[in-house]
Design a protein around this nucleic acid. Structure first.
Lengths: 193, 193
DNA sequence: GTCTATAAAACGATAGAC
DNA sequence: GTCTATCGTTTTATAGAC
């Protein structure tokens, strides 16, 4: 049996996700996706009825990837603060890519929320994953304003990503991650773990 | 003489700017722009050679509008802190639109910086206007880290705008603007004015 | 399930009359 | 300067052979 590489559907979604991240939804054509995934153009329609279906699959893939990442952070670190700092570190590790294409979730969600159709729930869901996870961490610090703190944290990261990509300055992410780490450390509240 | 409404070029740029803000660059077609500006499609090419030229004009228009706004803020308020707070208030006043379409500068700059061509300088210029203006205000507070403070301020706003539009929550802007006002007030440094 | 060929539509851009 | 008609391309999507 030959080396089994990922199925075509998976290859298509992976290629689409990467291209959507780098150039945005609209400029990404089915032909380019098919070529990058090494799948004939006509065959794409066996797996996805329309382009919008592919975009939906891309969003879902990003969401699942984010969920998996957050779950792993939660398993690997035992206190809310170390988890939150690990998240910040992880995002800062992608500084170079972020300076080129922005936050993979933020830029996608921003584009989705500009759509006329009701694709917006997808955007809300995507950012909700990140915010809700952070909120749970702050709740474990017994903070009553956990939701607001979570939103502050995610907003700070998204803002840094916007500026890093707009100004093409990767180091901006490093400076902001230090700031966020210090902010997390300075948070009052006793861990319940 | 009949009521003179704005020239066709101005109408085209204004219509393009609005549509680009609401749906993004790529999905905005020349036909839609022409229709919204009440100009026949073929006539568009008398004023702009290519679609990219229109996008360039849109960015320039946004930049000029922002420069005018900042200049007015500077004229109307006499201390750096009141100017910065007036900026924050101004941005917060657009909360409803921001929750629908994001920051007019941030979303445009984000889209531009994803382009393959070197359209990126336009994005840098646009965000640079805001950052440089804020930096000058912090410099007047005799802060040596004026640049970093300016970036922090703008990043906080952009992050809030991303979340407000993604989650479709206008009130998120109000909360963040209060936070930013308090942060500005708490800044040390004596005004030189 | 797979792939080629092609239809159908949308879009950027131009020609040329007025 | 203005506008209609239309070209040429790109892109989404389908038909139909294998």
């Amino acid at each position: 049996m030959s080396q089994t590489r990922p199925g075509k559907r998976e290859r298509l979604v992976a290629a689409a996700a990467e291209m959507v991240y780098r150039q945005g939804v609209a400029p990404t054509t089915l032909a380019h996706i098919a070529e990058a995934a090494d799948v004939p153009l006509g065959n794409v329609y066996y797996y996805f009825k329309t382009k919008e279906d592919i975009v939906g699959a891309v969003v879902q893939a990003r969401a699942e990837q984010l969920e998996a990442t957050l779950a792993e952070l939660e398993a690997r670190h035992r206190t809310p603060k170390t988890r939150l700092k690990a998240l910040v570190d992880m995002l800062a590790d992608r500084a170079d890519e972020t300076a080129l294409y922005g936050c993979p979730y933020g830029t996608l969600a921003t584009e989705l929320s500009k759509r006329p159709d009701g694709t917006n729930p997808l955007a809300t869901h995507l950012m909700g994953l990140l915010i809700n996870w952070a909120e749970r961490q702050f709740q474990q610090l017994v903070r009553r304003d956990a939701r607001d703190l979570a939103i502050d944290l995610v907003a700070a990261y998204e803002g840094a990503a916007v500026l890093a990509s707009t100004l093409a300055q990767p180091d901006l992410m490093a400076r902001h991650s230090r700031r966020l780490r210090a902010w997390i450390d300075a948070q009052p509240g006793r861990p319940t773990a």
